[in-house]
Design a protein around this nucleic acid. Structure first.
Length: 271
DNA sequence: ATGGTGGTCATACCA
């Protein structure tokens, strides 16, 4: 049995609890990292996760916006969250997952979307996104007391040409502008992170994890972007055994605009 | 150039 980690921007964990439950029943990941829970901590549907065998749930939420949660079958240790840009936003949760075979540090991230206008002079939200990325440079692939490290979540940037439906048409659209894609790739490589989705699926192949609510017939027009990511410390590259984008989730009842991404690792085979 | 759809919390704001 591989060790599996899923990441999913759920866009309200309370509204979408039914599809989260069926996802967990069907896929049974060891760890599920949620973003945009939009749920204060005292209103989080904790019991629903305990009932499904996820006894270790760490939440970092606020009223109305943002919010991240790390939901695990295995114990979570050294729980921390960082306040990026001193905004008080709940966008990061760091913990160590202790599996029988290996301890893995997991950074769960929800990077600011950045608004519509890709000019930091005119648009404070875009300025904030760039500042947030600058602070993300402090998060390296060093696992600390753990054996390995992962960084997962909604990074709100599609770095490669094949991470969007049309590179040319999105060059001036927030999420795919050169300043964002170059900054993200630079901080990823400088931090020692490996883009595990692209280790599993060659860069020539298009991958999307998000389709706008505003586009009708999302499946037929397929104007998606890869905004959700799974990065790992280099030691995890040879252990990566599976990478699944659960595209069908975009068609579920009352869907999120993002779909889950799941990575599997062969920890047992390593010894 | 514009508006298209959703979520939160009750009005605009955010994605």
């Amino acid at each position: 049995m591989p060790f599996t980690v899923a990441t999913w921007n759920i866009n309200s964990v309370r509204l979408r609890l039914p599809i989260v439950q069926s996802f967990l029943q069907r896929w049974q990941p060891d760890v599920l990292c949620l973003q945009e829970t939009k749920c204060p901590n005292d209103a989080f549907p904790m019991a629903a996760f305990h009932d499904l065998g996820y006894g270790h749930v760490e939440i970092h939420g606020q009223k109305g916006y943002h919010g991240v949660a790390t939901i695990s079958k295995h114990p979570l240790e050294e729980i921390e969250s960082r306040d990026f840009c001193a905004m008080g936003d709940t966008r990061h949760l760091d913990s160590i997952v202790r599996t029988p075979d290996r301890a893995v540090r997991i950074h769960n991230f929800y990077v600011p979307a950045g608004g519509d206008e890709p000019d930091p002079e005119k648009n404070p939200k875009f300025r904030h996104k760039l500042d947030f990325l600058d602070e993300m440079r402090a998060i390296s692939a060093d696992p600390g007391k753990a054996d390995s490290a992962l960084l997962v979540g909604d990074l709100n940037i599609a770095p490669l040409e094949t991470d969007v439906w049309s590179h040319k048409q999105l060059l001036r659209v927030v999420s795919h502008t050169p300043v964002e894609t170059e900054t993200l790739e630079d901080l990823r490589t400088a931090g020692g992170w490996s883009d595990l989705m692209r280790v599993a699926i060659p860069p020539e192949e298009k991958i999307f994890t998000w389709w706008s609510y505003r586009a009708r017939e999302w499946d037929i027009s397929d104007r998606g972007r890869r905004l959700d990511h799974i990065w790992g410390s280099p030691d995890l590259e040879p252990l990566l055994s599976d990478l699944t984008v659960v595209r069908e989730a975009r068609g579920w009842e009352k869907p999120s605009d993002h779909v889950p991404v799941i990575a599997g690792f062969a920890f047992n085979d390593a010894g």
